[in-house]
Design a protein around this nucleic acid. Structure first.
Lengths: 124, 124
DNA sequence: CTAATATGCAACCAAGAGGTTGCTTATGAG
DNA sequence: CTCATAAGCAACCTCTTGGTTGCATATTAG
């Protein structure tokens, strides 16, 4: 897709793809929104907090389903987990999403520059 | 996860999750990088352009695989497709990624505010 | 007009994702 | 100390994803 010497770009894609993928699910977006808005929370609390989000009791996910999603976010380093007694507490880490933010700005700039080149070309 | 009256937040998640998911793959990130850096390109061109990205001839994806990825990006509205003669040309649309950018800023701000509340609380 | 090129489509396959259930272990509240 | 709570783990199931192959159709270059 790009010359081989753009290895830093390739390694950016390899770093960002898992973070994008981790955010590519409504449940995980909801978990991230919850955790980024306050203190660390346990699995039980996050499972309980579906009240209000899920339309009915039947559409709530089990604790194990929430745990699976939290592990996906943990692997993408969007959250970190600390065990305290019988509770696993999950805390938001803004860094990976800040890096996505930066990456999206880079793509946007690249597009703007491509448009500028096209415009300049058309006006020749 | 949040009170039921935050339906606009829920609809944001439902809108953004597919875009994040579409970007959650190295091949699709490479395609987006390529398309955001220049003019519309055909499937054949994008398939050919793997030279340099893929380490070897053996690791290149088939045209059908590239097409599948482009359809994923098309469904997320990151690219749009125009048929010209025998060619399907794909063009970058910056809007969905700009919306992700805005969303990431919102999450970051939410986190900063949560930290401020914690700090204020600790200093009481 | 013909051959080359570009693409669409479907079928196939293996792996992974997302969810549940059942059970066990560890911790803490009372 | 006991019971409630929190969590871990594995197995299972269905669906989706990501890739390939084979073949057909449409368009265009020569």
């Amino acid at each position: 897709m790009l010359p081989k010497n753009s290895n830093d770009l390739v390694s950016q894609w390899q770093a960002h793809a898992p973070v994008f993928a981790a955010l590519g699910d409504v449940t995980r977006l909801a978990l991230v929104a919850k955790l980024s808005g306050g203190p660390p929370r346990s699995i039980a609390q996050l499972t309980e907090a579906q009240v209000g989000f899920a339309e009915s009791e039947e559409s709530r996910l089990t604790r194990q389903a929430i745990t699976k999603h939290l592990r996906v976010l943990e692997r993408a380093k969007i959250v970190r987990c600390v065990r305290r007694g019988r509770e696993s507490l999950f805390e938001f880490d803004p860094k990976p999403m800040e890096e996505l933010h930066t990456y999206l700005e880079l793509v946007s700039k690249q597009w703007d520059q491509a448009l500028d080149r096209l415009k300049a070309f058309v006006e020749e």
